[in-house]
Design a protein around this nucleic acid. Structure first.
Lengths: 106, 106
DNA sequence: TATATGTGCAATTGTTCGGTTGCGCAAATT
DNA sequence: AATTTGCGCAACCGAACAATTGCACATATA
């Protein structure tokens, strides 16, 4: 079962959960109140997000607080960095050049 | 059918395709050569990436060059910005405070 | 015109996903 | 001790996904 960060943020409900938790750690029931789906469905999303390390569990007696793992979010940022560098060095212009070369070769 | 940027980058093969194309616009066949899967499978990924606007098609006679759409990549970056702001303002510390308050309330 | 090439599209198949319902268990409350 | 509350887990279902195979079509080339 693939369980990486990108699959974690692929679902809109999960992104909404991340947004909620980013602002304040919450328990599954508290989170579920914000959605129309069942508590168990939310719980499944929490499980997935925890598996891909985007969330951390903080047990507090009988309750479990879920907290955002900022470090894992940075992983996405790092991935994006690659492309930022490529855009900034204007590789798009190189594309145009290559296409033109191809066109003229005919 | 959900077809947003986040689902676009959810698949590892598609991320690899994005990386290839980011450096140089390529045709489906050229792209397919880099993978062990069939040309049609790659073509499907290209279709998905095009639908969610991450790629742009540049028809060149009989061939079709696929090009990365940097603007759409920035959409992911914008999404990340939200959380960066939250981390930088150290909301995590606030979490700790809230948890401590909860703990002491008992 | 006949043929090869580059590509998209349709049908099929096995797998994963997101959701629901129901159950079980441990921690709190009475 | 009995009950309530907060959660996770398992089974199940329909939809979406990823990949394969086969075909159709348009553009080059001979």
């Amino acid at each position: 079962m693939r369980r990486d960060v990108f699959q974690g943020i692929a679902d809109p409900t999960r992104r909404a959960i991340i947004l909620l938790i980013a602002m304040q750690a919450m328990t599954p029931n508290a989170i579920a109140e914000h959605f129309k789906t069942s508590r168990q469905a939310v719980s499944k999303h929490l499980q997935i997000l925890t598996e891909c390390k985007l969330l951390k569990q903080k047990p507090e007696g009988r309750e479990i607080y879920y907290q955002l793992n900022g470090a894992k979010m940075e992983e996405i940022d790092k991935w994006l960095e690659q492309y930022k560098k490529i855009w900034e060095t204007r590789f798009n212009q190189l594309d145009e050049v290559l296409l033109t070369m191809k066109k003229n070769k005919k």
